[in-house]
Simulated assay, not measured.
Amino acid sequence: MNLVKFNNNLNQSLLPGFNDVFDSIFNDTFFNDRLISRVPAANISESENHYHVELAAPGLKKGDFRLNLDRDVLNISVEQNMETSDTQKNYNKREYSYHSWVRSFTLPESANPDDIQAFYTDGILNIEIAKREEAKMVRRQIEIR
């Protein structure tokens, strides 16, 4: 059996633009990029005393994550077994499905590898990497003469 894409021009003539709405949602590059890469998206930010890494990884448990530090490279990995029960869902579209993946981040020289903390809340893995004392931002008021 072959699957053939059916293009119904009758729909376009009766309701122009109707299918374009769904095409823009289901063919969005954000979703396609995530499906191709199969790794969670990451946000990296910096505050005065820490570097912050956030990974969007919904549907996981904190025990699924493994964090390792190898020299100055922080490796975040997940190894998850597929459920093989009779109640497994039959998905029409599945946009997140992380079974196993690894993300690696090289820490800057100003990071303190001895002070890294991680916590997983509401589908987001948060990693806080402390800065070395000499790398912390110094703030002071400068007098204008």
Rank of each mutant, 00 (worst) to 15 (best):
E46V: 07
I116M: 02
T29C: 06
F18V: 10
V138N: 13
M1Y: 02
D115Q: 07
E143M: 15
M1N: 11
I44N: 12
S45E: 15
L67P: 00
Q117A: 13
R132S: 11
N19S: 07
N2W: 12
A56F: 09
V39C: 02
E79F: 14
F65T: 02
E133G: 12
G123D: 14
P16S: 12
R132D: 12
Y96D: 04
I124P: 04
F31T: 09
Y96P: 08
N9K: 09
R38M: 08
N81A: 14
V53T: 10
N43T: 05
H50P: 01
Y96S: 08
D64V: 02
N49G: 00
I25D: 05
R145Q: 06
Y51V: 04
D72L: 12
V53R: 08
K131W: 00
S45D: 07
I76L: 09
D23F: 11
L10K: 10
S97N: 07
I144P: 02
L10W: 11
V39S: 04
Y96G: 06
R139P: 00
E109V: 13
D33S: 14
M137A: 15
N19R: 04
N81G: 09
I142D: 04
N8Y: 01
P113H: 06
S100H: 01
S85Y: 14
D33L: 13
E143R: 14
A118T: 03
A111M: 03
N27V: 01
E109I: 14
A56L: 02
G63A: 11
P16G: 11
P40R: 10
A41E: 10
K61V: 03
A135L: 00
K61I: 08
F6G: 01
K136Q: 13
V53I: 07
L3V: 12
R103S: 11
Y51W: 10
I25V: 14
I36H: 15
R94S: 15
N92C: 03
G59S: 15
A42E: 04
D28L: 02
M82I: 13
N7D: 06
A41N: 07
D70P: 00
H52T: 03
L125C: 06
L125E: 06
L15M: 10
N8F: 08
G59M: 14
R71S: 03
D114Y: 15
K131A: 00
A130K: 15
Y96V: 13
S85H: 08
I116G: 05
D64K: 04
K89C: 07
A42Q: 03
R139Q: 13
W101H: 00
E95D: 12
F22R: 00
R66D: 09
P16H: 13
Q12K: 14
P40Y: 09
M137Q: 05
A111P: 00
L125V: 03
S24E: 09
M137K: 06
P58C: 09
D86N: 14
V73C: 08
D86I: 07
N90C: 09
F119C: 09
Y91M: 11
G59K: 08
A135W: 02
S45F: 12
R94H: 06
Y120R: 03
N81I: 13
K136M: 06
V21M: 07
F65Y: 03
A118S: 14
D20M: 03
P40D: 09
P108A: 07
A41V: 11
E134C: 08
G59I: 05
L107F: 03
I116C: 09
V138R: 04
